[in-house]
Computed example of a mutant assay.
Amino acid sequence: MDAVDEKIITELTRNARISHAELGHRVRLSRNAVRQRVERLERQGHIAGYTIVRPSGDRADGRVRAHVLVYRQDRMRGGDVLAAIRRVPEVVACDVLSGEFDLLVSLEAGSLDRIQGIWEHIAQMPGVRDTVTALTLSRVVDRPRS
């Protein structure tokens, strides 16, 4: 990717519905040249489903990812914990696990402070025995869902 591709991605991040003509005006290329570059960026995987995909670890949106492994007091009657976790807007996924841990809670938040606040909230929930938290440093595989 060159500087023009970066400008295109920046403009598409601001407004993914911008016309090729307007995008061309902003990056100083013809509509056809912009269309060709956008198609190439799609083929290369930088644009997927009209979502900008940055290289792993490049969190341009400033979001922080973390995973909380949760031990519940009672695996079979821990529905209150699940209901409380569903109400946390930063929870992007919650999986019930087999094995040592009961739940894997995946979070995305705007700051480390917010991640800590959510962790404290989960750890203090009635029915939670213990937690283990890991911050995501980088993502090496990020496949679009189909």
Rank of each mutant, 00 (worst) to 15 (best):
V38L: 06
Q124V: 00
A60S: 04
R35T: 03
V38D: 05
R17W: 01
L29R: 14
R40H: 10
H46E: 07
A84Q: 06
H25Y: 14
V96G: 07
M1E: 04
S56W: 07
E120I: 01
R87L: 15
N32E: 10
Y71W: 08
A33H: 01
Y50V: 01
V81T: 05
T51W: 03
F101L: 11
I115C: 10
Q124F: 00
D5F: 00
R87T: 15
R43V: 11
I9W: 02
I18C: 02
G79H: 05
H67V: 07
L12V: 11
R77L: 15
A66M: 05
M125Q: 12
G110E: 13
L29H: 06
T133M: 15
G24P: 02
G99P: 08
Q116V: 03
V140S: 08
D113Q: 00
I85A: 02
Q44G: 09
P144S: 06
V64T: 02
L135F: 12
E22G: 00
L112C: 00
A3V: 02
P126A: 11
H67W: 07
R35V: 01
R26H: 14
G57E: 13
I9P: 00
V81N: 08
A83N: 03
V34E: 03
D61H: 03
E120F: 07
G110H: 07
R65S: 13
R143M: 04
R129Q: 13
G110D: 09
G45A: 09
T133R: 13
R86E: 02
